[in-house]
């Protein structure tokens, strides 16, 4: 059906009097890679957090795989879901944080196993076997029993990506996954994300790595002041931007 389709319709979000999202409309096709760029404070991270309902929207709605996130449709009303049901929805949406947020008191393997077993109720043996395959995929099969603080930043972020994949999500959201890393560690994390691109999972990546956007994105979205200024294929947005604001931003970062 529409697994992996992300629809954002007329989303507004304010913190107090500060409007962070001022009417966002965005459709991400299943399996595609969308890269969101823009100056800090433009609402990129908030947009991601709204997609998996870490933040509630004030107006508008978000749907993933055709299912409205955080609400249930009954006739012509949207009823807010209980936290339990929101948590269930979230297992279909993976999230990778800028600061990794691995659980430091658990081993790498335990970090991966936690959600599939306790949020999805899948059998531990099956999940552990899968988790080891995932660790191999991110090149860390020998670190299963290490604790996060014993790993480098790049390794921690690769574990965080494996952890997000462990619930077999249809959509993966990356919130500046390489911004907290030393420059020489950025490549190893981007390589892992490249492997995921076009593997069937929808990726939405907020990043400042313009080279990565050019190479991998199906769509580049430029945001400023809580609005989408322009979007399109990288060749158009990055090389022939239509708006002055996009040009000004790209001049600064390129």
């Amino acid at each position: 059906m529409s697994a992996g389709l992300v629809e954002v319709h007329g989303v507004h979000k304010s913190y107090g009097t500060l409007e962070v999202l001022a009417g966002i409309d965005l459709v991400v096709q299943p399996g595609e890679v969308t890269v969101v760029i823009g100056p800090s404070g433009s609402g990129k991270s908030t947009l991601l957090r709204v997609i998996n309902h870490l933040e509630r929207v004030d107006r508008g709605f978000v749907a993933v795989g055709g299912e409205v996130v955080g609400y249930e449709r009954r006739g012509d009303t949207l009823r807010e879901l209980r936290e339990k049901d929101v948590l269930r929805q979230r297992t279909r949406i993976g999230f990778v944080f800028q600061s990794f947020n691995l659980f430091p008191h658990l081993t790498v393997l335990e970090n991966l196993v936690e959600a599939p077993v306790h949020a999805q109720g899948r059998p531990r043996r099956e999940v552990e076997a899968e988790a080891r395959v995932l660790l191999e995929r991110v090149g860390l099969s020998d670190k299963a029993d290490a604790r996060p603080r014993q790993l480098s930043g790049g390794q921690q972020q690769r574990v965080a990506i494996a952890r997000a994949l462990a619930t077999q999500p249809e959509v993966l959201l990356f919130d500046e996954p390489t911004s907290a890393l030393d420059p020489e560690l950025v490549g190893e994390v981007l390589d892992v994300i490249k492997d995921l691109a076009h593997s069937g999972t929808t990726l939405v990546v907020v990043t400042h790595e313009i080279g990565f956007a050019r190479e991998l994105a199906d769509t580049v979205v430029f945001m400023d002041g809580g609005r989408i200024v322009e979007q399109g294929p990288p060749a158009q947005v990055l090389d022939h931007p239509q708006h002055a604001r996009t040009r000004a931003f790209l001049d600064k970062v390129l």
Binding site: L87, T91, F103, E114, A164, T167
Partner: peptide, 11 residues
Amino acid sequence: HEAAAALGIPR
């Protein structure tokens, strides 16, 4: 807290 919530782990 956020990472646990994002993974859908029960409260």
